[in-house]
Nucleic acid binder design. Structure first.
Lengths: 164, 164
DNA sequence: TATAAAATATAGTCTTATCTAACTTTATGG
DNA sequence: CCATAAAGTTAGATAAGACTATATTTTATA
């Protein structure tokens, strides 16, 4: 049976990511752990691992070890990074609850274009490298969300010079 | 056959949105238009319309008119709004190309939590209602993306007072 | 170390969503 | 007004991804 090169489906990406995350936690990934993490039954896991194996992403010996290949690890890393970036954005920028941010990140990670991802990374970078701990505009936005109006002094700088 | 109340699948949401968008353009939606818009074959459209009808979202008479129900229109509106908000964010904030922004919006619209959506709306609102045409920080971000470094004077305000 | 329990695997079913091929209805231009 | 083209529908195939029920293997324990 030849190897399949096609892009992974969202579902298979989830399984791959699960293997990766369990490994990150220092555990040896078992079918049961994956099934618990993704809330699916074990036969679904076995089927998915078989599909991932056909795609050269994991090695899975019957009743035995589950390991990422080089390719699988790189791919899982990419997905996981996207996940973390999205979660960070939802939580830290938009101020969404941690659990909802997690949920959204978990689905959207499969659909974000590379370019969009790159720019989102830059956006977070831009915020983090601000000379202030948290940029004033971001504090203002959070104030705006909580109070329904901009804080005093927000947007009083550059442009709109008449008002300064 | 009883009506199904379950949430629509991403695929059905796409069909519903397609009907809505064609109607918005002042056209009477035809199977062929939907198939062209979504790049699927006409039998897929017919099957989807049947499923949407079972869910009380459209009325479709054989060989005849396709119309949104009240419920269908409300739902389509919600999806379309999400689409537009996402596209706006990708394009205007992140600076992603129009076609990629469209593509990402088109998939992600199906997966965004209400709360995340609400905050994204507020975020765009926050930007649009800035006393300046475009907030300084947003210009700075775009500069940062283009040039690889923050423009002079970025982040020199409030907090970090020692450096001011 | 035999056996029960836990983990894993297989077989087979169901649903969703797509397709192609073939058929039916509607629209249109001589 | 009717022949033919265009549009729409039906039937049947296929693939993915989940499930249940059952079988098999491994592990733990009495």
């Amino acid at each position: 049976m030849n190897r399949i090169t096609q892009k992974l489906s969202p579902s298979l990406e989830d399984y791959l990511e699960a293997v990766y995350r369990i490994s990150l936690n220092g555990k040896i990934p078992r079918v049961k752990d994956i099934s618990a993490l993704l809330k699916v039954k074990t036969p679904s896991v076995v089927a998915a691992l078989k599909a991932l194996e056909r795609r050269g992403m994991v090695v899975h010996e019957k009743y035995g070890y589950i390991e990422l290949t080089r390719r699988g690890e790189k791919e899982a890393e990419r997905i996981y990074k996207t996940h973390m970036v999205l979660k960070q954005f939802f939580e830290k920028v938009l101020g969404v609850d941690s659990s909802i941010a997690e949920e959204d990140a978990c689905t959207i990670e499969h659909y974000l274009n590379q370019d969009t991802f790159d720019r989102l990374v830059k956006f977070l970078e831009f915020i983090e490298t601000c000379p202030n701990q948290t940029p004033f505009w971001l504090k203002s936005f959070h104030h705006y969300v909580e109070e329904g109006e901009r804080p005093p002094g927000c947007g009083k700088r550059n442009g709109n010079k008449k008002e300064q």
